[in-house]
Design a protein around this nucleic acid. Structure first.
Length: 263
DNA sequence: AAGTTTCACAACCGCCTAGGC
DNA sequence: GGCCTAGGCGGTTGTGAAACT
């Protein structure tokens, strides 16, 4: 890929935005929208690159951005989601209306990480996090209005012929919401044996003739929820397309016979 | 009061992916 | 299928403010 010349070489400005520049950008977007970020600065009369304009707008100027300190609830939500999702700031931000991924990333690195560390060193102060964490427990999720079941593709690669990749990547945890009354089976030996025996009677193996039905591969398909004993969230620990396709289809087939919640 | 260190956060950088051609 | 671009993402840096010595 050919990298675009940097801003400085193009005679474009870098560094902090001035109030005047902000005003120009806001006015332009309010009037014309932001269909093409690359063309925007030229049309708006800004000596900035499109990327800089986009970041300034999405991280700072957007009207729906919530300014000010994070509430206790927001902090706890970030901690819980980070435990489940890792450094996927955009996915975390998607569940915190008005907060940007950049803001969440900053607050994590400057404050929450330390807070969490302190709590781990001092168990007496851990109660709040533990109690918040329990909100993500499988049993709670079963009754929650926002169940968190999802199939997560850590390799950001399409995993299913039936379902487009955008269903996984763009919506994140929100993309596969289920009926809140859905129930989830426990992940234990019988769960895996049921999955595998179900696969033997399905056509999944015909679609993936090169794939061995090896129970040891179940590590590729593991729970990433706050608790590890229930199928309320999955992570697929592989970047191999064939692995992901295989396990996705296997799960779908098994889901049919095991009456798992619809995906 | 002055110098130094730490903190917070805006902004940038480089990589990746989707989509158009 | 390959090339290219735009946009998105996470990691990192730069800088001003606050705290500390």
């Amino acid at each position: 890929m050919v990298r675009a010349p940097c801003c400085e070489k193009m005679g474009l400005k870098k560094g902090p935005w001035t109030p005047e520049e902000d005003q120009i950008l806001i006015s332009y977007i309010q009037k014309y929208g932001h269909g093409n970020w690359r063309a925007l600065p030229k049309q708006a009369g800004l000596l900035r690159c499109g990327k800089s304009c986009r970041l300034r707008w999405t991280n700072y100027l957007r009207p729906d951005i919530k300014r000010g300190n994070f509430t206790k609830e927001e902090e706890d939500t970030i901690i819980n989601l980070h435990e489940m999702l890792g450094n996927r700031w955009s996915m975390i931000a998607a569940r915190l209306p008005g907060r940007t991924d950049n803001e969440i990333k900053n607050v994590w690195h400057t404050y929450l990480k330390k807070k969490l560390k302190q709590n781990q060193l001092n168990p007496d102060t851990k109660t709040q996090i533990s109690s918040e964490k329990s909100k993500c427990d499988a049993n709670t999720m079963r009754q929650s209005s926002e169940p968190v079941m999802r199939i997560e593709n850590q390799g950001h690669t399409p995993v299913s012929p039936q379902q487009s990749s955008s269903d996984f990547s763009s919506g994140g945890a929100d993309s596969l919401n289920l009926d809140s009354s859905a129930t989830f089976p426990a992940i234990d030996d019988s769960f895996w044996s049921d999955i595998l025996s179900s696969a033997e009677t399905s056509d999944v193996l015909e679609d993936f003739p090169a794939m061995e039905l090896n129970p040891e591969l179940q590590f590729l398909f593991s729970p990433v929820s706050a608790t590890s004993d229930s199928v309320c969230a999955f992570g697929l620990n592989t970047n191999e397309d064939k692995d992901m396709d295989f396990w996705y289809n296997l799960f779908i087939k098994a889901g049919e016979s095991l009456a798992l919640p619809d995906l």
